[in-house]
Amino acid sequence: MLRYIALRALLALLVAFTVSLAAFLLLNVAADPAQAIAGEDATQDVIDAIRARYGLDRPLAVRYFDWLGGVLHGDFGESYYWHQPVASLVWDRADETITLALSALTVTILIALPLGALAALNPNSWIDRFALGVAVSAQAVPNFWLGLIMIIVFGVTFPIFPVSGDDTWRHFVLPAFVLGASSVPAVMRLTRTGLIEVMSADYVRTARSKGFRGGALLRRHAMRNALLPVISVLAVQLGQKFGGSVITESIFAINGLGRLALESILGADIPTVQMLIFVFAIVFVTMNLIADILNAALDPRIRIG
Rank of each mutant, 00 (worst) to 15 (best):
M1E: 12
R3Y: 09
A6M: 09
L13P: 03
L13H: 09
L14V: 08
A16P: 00
F17Q: 10
T18D: 12
V19A: 15
S20T: 15
L21M: 14
V29P: 00
V29S: 03
A30S: 15
A30K: 14
P33G: 12
A34K: 06
A36M: 14
I37F: 03
A38P: 01
E40N: 08
Q44S: 10
I47Y: 02
D48G: 03
A49F: 04
R51S: 11
D57A: 11
P59E: 06
L60V: 14
R63E: 07
W67V: 02
G69L: 05
G70Q: 09
L72M: 13
L72H: 04
G74K: 13
Y80V: 06
W82D: 11
A87E: 12
V90A: 04
W91H: 15
A94K: 08
D95H: 13
E96T: 15
T99G: 05
T99Q: 11
T99K: 15
L102M: 14
S103F: 13
A104D: 07
A104E: 02
T108D: 00
L110P: 03
P114Y: 11
P114R: 11
L115D: 07
L115A: 08
A117N: 08
A119D: 07
A120V: 14
N122E: 01
N124C: 02
N124A: 13
N124Q: 14
W126I: 15
R129Q: 12
L132K: 12
V136L: 14
V136C: 12
A138M: 14
A138W: 00
Q139K: 01
V141Y: 00
V141Q: 00
L146S: 00
F158D: 03
P159C: 09
F161Y: 09
G165N: 11
D166H: 15
D166N: 14
F177P: 00
F177G: 00
V178Q: 04
A181W: 03
P185K: 08
P185D: 02
V187M: 04
M188D: 01
L190H: 09
T206S: 13
R208S: 10
F212D: 02
F212M: 03
L217V: 01
R219S: 12
R219M: 07
H221M: 09
M223K: 14
N225D: 02
I231T: 13
L238K: 04
G239H: 02
Q240C: 04
Q240D: 09
K241R: 08
S245A: 14
V246P: 11
I251P: 07
A253N: 10
N255K: 11
N255Y: 10
G258C: 01
R259L: 10
R259N: 12
S264R: 11
I265S: 03
A268E: 03
D269G: 04
I270K: 06
I270F: 08
L276H: 11
I277W: 07
F278C: 08
A281E: 06
F284T: 06
T286D: 02
M287T: 04
N288Y: 00
L289T: 11
L289E: 09
N295C: 14
R301D: 03
R301V: 00
I302S: 06
R303N: 03
G305V: 00
